[in-house]
Simulated scan of single mutants.
Amino acid sequence: MDYTIFAVAIFLIAVLVFGGVFLIRPRRPGVTDEKPTAEVKDEAAATGTAVAEPEEREAAGGVETAEPEAPPAAAPAAPELETPPPSAGRLVRLRARLARSQSVFGQGLLSLLAADKLDDDAWDEIEDTLITADVGVTSAAQIVDNLRTKVKVHGGRTPEEVRDMLRAELIAHIDPDMDRGVRTEPHGDRPAVVMIVGVNGTGKTTTTGKLARVLVGDGRSVVLGAADTFRAAAADQLETWGGRVGAPVIRKDEGADPASVAFDAVARGVDDHVDTVIVDTAGRLHTKTGLMDELGKVKRVVEKKSQVDEVLLVLDATTGQNGMRQARVFAEAVNITGIVLTKLDGTAKGGIIIQVQRELGVPVKLVGLGEGPDDLAPFDPETFVDAILSTD
């Protein structure tokens, strides 16, 4: 027997037995075949490979999972539009404010007429009071002559009789028969076009915004044209007014051609089938002929798209005779159809209503009686006179 072969066989069997023991030894609790996380990450950093987190490795070997979707971000809420009051009754609601501002004018006349003795000096004082209130020299003389005649005819002068006489005379000179409606109704497929003109400082842009509120309050749709391109703040101001009531504003860069802005505004009004387009023009100095010519150009360019229904001149009631000079120059440059008298609540010079209508033949259509957004009101002669003669 070859003992060498037998010894080799024994050796091989021993190697196989002991090697199997190490290969199939049981795992100790808590020990895995994976490398520690820190070690794996260090190795990944050295080799430039990506390391999956335990959750990702588990998902890779089983059911695929997805991150929960974040809820969509809520859209910002649109600003709530304001609902302005209608134009009807506005002047009546503002009557107390008007009475306070014009009491010096009205009550002064009443006290003079109710005096026991009305001699020439008293009548001269009445006439001076009228002139001081910007009624105008010619109108003041006519009012005094008519009152003197009525006093002689009626004889006795109770407070009620004096008030009735003065009321009738003032209403007659303001002329209640003048057409004071602002033409804002569309015609066919074309919107009504209203141009707002006037010098700087009269409240022109503010009047444009307030007029938009009046029309929206009456159920009209409006587009605003920011044709005052010489003052960027004017367009910004107009956008604030328009944004409150949902009226879009057409504007261009500062220094752009005002006529092109006005034309684009009217074109937008035609495309959107709106009722009224209001164009705010630059505050033109009445002494600058070139600027006045440009105002005429704006009107001509707009009329290529739609007729201009109203050209409203904004006058500051506190400027007195200077306001009259402005009115005359504007009337020569463009066909003024109506007057907007602003700041009437801060002056006792309401007589300018009589003077401007007499000299231009143009009615006062709107009056501004405060700084509030809804303080612009259609003008009514009887309500105005009753307010200034009120004893409440």
Score class of each variant (00 low, 15 high):
Q355K: 13
V314D: 09
L285D: 14
A317G: 08
T318P: 12
G368H: 13
I336G: 11
V311I: 14
K252H: 10
V302Q: 10
L366P: 01
R284S: 03
V362Q: 08
A282P: 02
G338C: 01
F263A: 12
A282E: 06
V270E: 13
F263C: 05
L295M: 07
L291W: 15
T281V: 01
T319R: 09
Q321E: 00
E310N: 11
V367G: 00
L366E: 06
K252S: 15
V302L: 08
D316K: 11
G370A: 05
A331V: 02
G370W: 02
V356N: 12
A317E: 06
A256T: 02
D309T: 05
A327M: 14
G346I: 02
E303S: 06
V308M: 06
N335Y: 13
V356I: 13
E371H: 14
Q355L: 08
E254W: 15
I339S: 04
V356A: 11
I336C: 10
N335W: 06
I336D: 09
A333L: 07
L344T: 10
R284L: 06
Q321L: 03
L366D: 05
E294S: 06
F263N: 06
V362H: 07
P248C: 09
G290T: 10
G255M: 13
K252V: 07
I339C: 03
